[in-house]
Simulated assay, not measured.
Amino acid sequence: MKPSIAHRAGLRGRRRILLASSLGGVLLAGVVAGCGGGAGQNGGTTAQPSASSSPNASSFSGTPPSAMASSASEAVSSARASASAAASSASARASEFKASVDAETQRRSATAEKELKGVTGRGNAVSEVAMTGLPRAQTGGVLAVLVTITNKTGSEASYAVQVDFKDASGKVVETRYVGAEHLQPGKKEQPIAFSHQPPEPKLTPVLAKAQRY
């Protein structure tokens, strides 16, 4: 007896299901084989990236972008400008300080000369003043003497000192004045008397007058 139409349709449906299952199994086996390739003894580990995944070194030129180079150049220029400005400022301050020192020295010299004009003899403070010649190597070849003024009294005092520079015959060739103002008891100051004469002929500094006022 021939199978009915419904029976034949059912057989064809089951064959399709079996065929689909078989194909699915083959595809799954292929996928598993592809993932496990080259596992060897480390069959359970993740495959390492190949060397071809490394960045191409030829794509790096070693030269910074123009914007970075420009910024670096500007930074260097700015640093140099700052250093130059600092040096100029330091030089200006040094010049100002020297000028102020020269001005103060001239003022004290003028005050000392004024105080000594009416003094007869050597003055009342010769014992409070000592002089030491400075080596020419330290003064650039200029004849100079360090004048040490010490207040040996019990109260504040000011001092005026006259230094004469004499030649070999005893003649006064040049006179310089130095001083100390508002010197406290027991304190001392050490102004320097410079000669403006040439190195030759040689001169000798002499304490001419010293007045406390």
Rank of each mutant, 00 (worst) to 15 (best):
K2A: 14
H7M: 14
R8C: 11
A9D: 06
L11E: 07
G13M: 13
G13S: 13
R14F: 08
R15F: 12
G25V: 07
L27Q: 06
L28E: 01
A29H: 06
G30A: 10
V31M: 05
V31N: 09
V31P: 06
V32S: 10
Q41M: 14
Q41I: 09
G44L: 15
S50C: 06
S50V: 09
N56S: 07
F60P: 00
F60K: 12
F60I: 12
S61G: 05
G62I: 04
G62M: 06
G62T: 03
G62C: 09
V76Y: 11
A81G: 07
A81S: 09
A85I: 06
S89L: 10
S91R: 14
S95M: 09
S95H: 07
A99L: 05
S100G: 05
V101K: 14
D102M: 10
D102F: 04
R108G: 04
R108S: 08
E113H: 10
E113F: 07
K114M: 11
E115P: 00
L116G: 05
K117Q: 14
T120K: 15
R122A: 11
G123T: 00
N124D: 08
V126Y: 00
A130M: 08
M131T: 07
T132P: 01
T132R: 14
T132Q: 15
G133N: 13
L134R: 00
P135V: 08
G141Y: 03
V142F: 06
L143N: 02
V145A: 01
V145F: 01
L146G: 03
V147N: 00
T150P: 00
K152D: 07
K152A: 04
G154M: 05
E156D: 13
Q162L: 05
F165Y: 03
K171L: 09
K171Y: 10
V173N: 03
E174Q: 10
E174S: 02
T175P: 04
E181Q: 12
H182T: 08
K188S: 12
E189N: 13
A193F: 05
F194E: 05
F194N: 09
H196M: 14
P199S: 07
E200N: 12
A208E: 07
A208P: 05
K209G: 00
K209F: 04
K209N: 04
K209R: 12
Q211W: 01
R212Q: 04
Y213M: 14
